[in-house]
Structure formats: C-alpha cells, structure tokens
Design a protein around this nucleic acid. Structure first.
Lengths: 143, 143
DNA sequence: CCGCAGTAGTTCGTGACACGTACTATTGAC
DNA sequence: GTCAATAGTACGTGTCACGAACTACTGCGG
C-alpha cells in the first residue's frame, strides 16, 4: 500500500508514536497527558496562567481546571505574584517535582530507544536536523 | 536555558508542534482531532471496530462513541459484515471522504512547510531516517 | 449436534479536557 | 480619576477515554 511514505505521513506517524508513548509513560506515573505536559512546562520555573496557557496551547479557561485538578492532587500550587495582585504563579510542589522527574526519565529513556537502532552518524544528523526544525517551538519539555 | 536540546526533548517538541497543527487544521475542517485521526485511518478501506481501535490506540468502548458521533454527522457509516454477523465495518461516506481530502491536503501542505527551510540534501536525509523510524508504526495517516 | 470459550461490539457510569462567554479584580496609561 | 486592557475564574456544553458488565454471534471440541 505504501512503498514510500511521504514526509508528511512519516511526520504524522512519528507524532502518533511519541504521543502514545507520552500517554503510556504518563499513565505509569499516574499522570494524564495534559498534566504531564503541564509539569514539564513548569519544570523550568513557576509560570503565570496566561504564559502557561500560551506555552501549552490551551485556552486560559481550560487551564483553570487543569491547575485545579493538579493542585488538588498536590502536584502544583498557586502562589500570589508579588508584583501583580491579579496574577498567580503556578509552581511545582515537591511531589510534583518528583512526578516530573520520574516521568521525564522514563520518557527520555523510551524516546532514545527509538533512535538506538540507527547508526551513530545517521542518528546525529537526524537529531541535528530535528533541533533546527523545533528551534523556535514552545518549551514543552525541559532539558 | 538550552544551548543544545536533547534528542528526546526535540522529539517531544516536534510532536507537540505537529499535534497542534493537526488540531488546528482539523478545526478548520470542522473535525476534532480524534475524528480526523479516524477518517485518516479509514481512508484506506472500511475497517472493523476492533481493528480500528487497535490502529488508533483507543479502547473499543471509546470507539463506539467516536463512531456514533461521526456517523451522526454523516462522515461515516456502519455496514454489516457479510462474513460475520457480529461485526460491522466502518466506512467513509462521500461527505467523510471530502472532509478527509480537505484535511489531508491542508495538513500535508503545512507539514511540508516545516521542512521547506532545510537544504534539499538535509531534508532528504531527515525524511529518510524518519521513514526508518516509523516503518512499523500504525498507519494513522494514509498516503 | 451440543455446549462453551472466545470474539465483536455496545452500554453505562465516571472523570478529564477543551472551548467560548461572561464575570471580577487589578493594572497602567491618559 | 477614568477607562481600556489584562489576569484569572465560573459556568454550561460537548468530546473523549476508560473499565466493567452485557448481548450476540462464531467456531471448536466432544
């Protein structure tokens, strides 16, 4: 049916693959996909709702519930913003940091397994190009 | 913050990028992400519920509602299976075929734009490696 | 031919997400 | 001080996903 996959097709399949992995690893850490994404994004530093919603690509109104549930589970806290009394900063709790760590390690391991089959040279070229493509994409997965 | 992104990080960002694109294009065609995925998977041929759920990576019970809503919108139909009276085949309607076509074209265009910045040689190497990685991934996006 | 384990699909209850609209509180510019 | 803009929330609606329990049918062993 497909002797040679188009580039677009391959991209979609890769996305599907990674997304499924993401969901699986998340489940193993008792995190939903959306929660895992949020924790990853918060890994760098506490973030306001507006910025966080822009990074994650969801509406602010959606984020409210997301943070509510995560806060209720003890993964994050809302901190008042010292400069702006309207704003809050969402920050990881210790528990959230632990969950993020476990998630991040596990996912990184599985993702790298995707590439282990490749010869070193090809792998380096691939990841190099990959970096160029995503250079200015949102930081949804901290290093 | 990140002089050099790890391979895993880049993969996650790319996935997020493509996933967002997928959702945006879908919305433009009045399709949810799950619906668009289903249509893409049905593009090849009518498919039974069990096989479809395996391809999409969702439980059969989730798929029932997905097909219900899509059928209600006139995108797909359930056909009786001639060989097995328990089974049904889900097939695209004309309307579903049109929607898939529009979605597929638009998404392909946008995905290829991601790669247009690259020099031809680098792009070819990249897509070549990509194809190897996803060689045995589910066919969630027909060619 | 019968019984029965396995398979195909649905139903039901529950919870998580996502959206848009409308709202409150606060800020900052004029 | 007024007022538009911003930060965040509340609310109603719809979609999606899961697992457990259920019906209908198939195909195998006896």
């Amino acid at each position: 049916m497909e002797e040679t996959l188009s580039a677009a097709s391959s991209l979609v399949r890769l996305t599907h693959l990674v997304h499924t992995l993401y969901a699986d690893v998340g489940r193993g850490c008792d995190l939903t996909t959306a929660q895992a994404q949020m924790l990853c994004s918060l890994g760098n530093r506490p973030t306001g709702m507006a910025e966080l919603s822009a990074t994650l690509g969801v509406e602010r109104s959606s984020l409210t519930g997301l943070v509510d549930r995560a806060e209720h589970r003890g993964l994050v806290v809302r901190q008042p913003d010292a400069q702006d009394r309207r704003a809050v900063k969402v920050a990881l709790t210790d528990e959230g940091t632990d969950a993020l760590q476990r998630f991040h390690d596990e996912l990184t391991k599985k993702l790298e397994q995707l590439l282990t089959e490749l010869p070193a040279k090809e792998r380096d070229q691939f990841t190099g190009t990959l970096r160029r493509i995503v250079a200015d994409a949102p930081a949804v997965f901290a290093d």
